[in-house]
């Protein structure tokens, strides 16, 4: 049997104040979020224009750079000889440092089954130098691509990398299209 609850004046006032404060904070928060997203653009680089000059690693105001290598695994060939993983002319296709291209060891590979290997980027180690991207594009199918990681980027008004980019690959993009990966969107559409 449900018992009717009697609200006294003090509880009514307290509840009213709490509700008012909560609603106010909600409105302020919504307003701030709306202001931060609406009409705001963020920096991104176009992999189709990128020439892997190395500036992304050195020009960013962050240490390490907010630019990271992204692996578009939809495109990857999973080859034993990965030109983004091994330096040109590597003597052996092993994980020995002498054979690897990445100066920070940010790419790891794992044997799947003959003849396939999986390649992953350790983002914390990647400094955005683009050496792997350059070789992957030159000899492979270009599945390694540089992108500004939006969760790291502080979105400077004047992006320091964009200023020094020789290929003019940087542009302001809408948050809805925060990443400009090649060979990814097309595949997603067909999926």
């Amino acid at each position: 049997m449900k018992k009717d609850k009697i609200i006294n004046r003090r509880d009514f006032i307290q509840t009213g104040i709490r509700t008012g404060i909560g609603a106010g904070l909600g409105i302020i928060g919504f307003g701030l979020i709306s202001r931060s997203v609406e009409g705001k653009t963020i920096w991104q680089l176009d992999p189709a224009k990128c020439v892997q000059c190395g500036n992304c690693a050195t020009e960013c105001v962050l240490q390490a750079s907010a630019v990271k290598c992204i692996h578009v695994t939809d495109m990857c060939g999973y080859c034993d000889l990965c030109s983004g993983f091994f330096r040109p002319g590597a003597l052996e296709l092993t994980t020995g440092a002498e054979n690897k291209l990445c100066p920070t060891g940010a790419i790891v590979r794992t044997y799947v089954e003959e003849p396939y290997f999986e390649y992953r980027i350790i983002e914390e180690l990647c400094n955005g130098c683009g050496k792997c991207v350059q070789n992957c594009g030159a000899f492979g199918n270009g599945s390694l691509q540089l992108q500004v990681r939006q969760d790291l980027c502080v979105n400077c008004n004047q992006c320091a990398i964009a200023r020094s980019c020789p290929a003019e690959a940087y542009s302001r993009v809408e948050p809805e299209t925060a990443y400009l990966l090649k060979g990814f969107e097309e595949l997603k559409i067909t999926d």
Binding site: E92, T94, G96, A97, G105, T110, F117
Partner: peptide
């Protein structure tokens, strides 16, 4: 630090 040596990819 992890040494980058042959065999880290578990290739048989």
């Amino acid at each position: 630090f992890t040494e980058a040596v042959p065999g880290l990819d578990n290739r048989p």
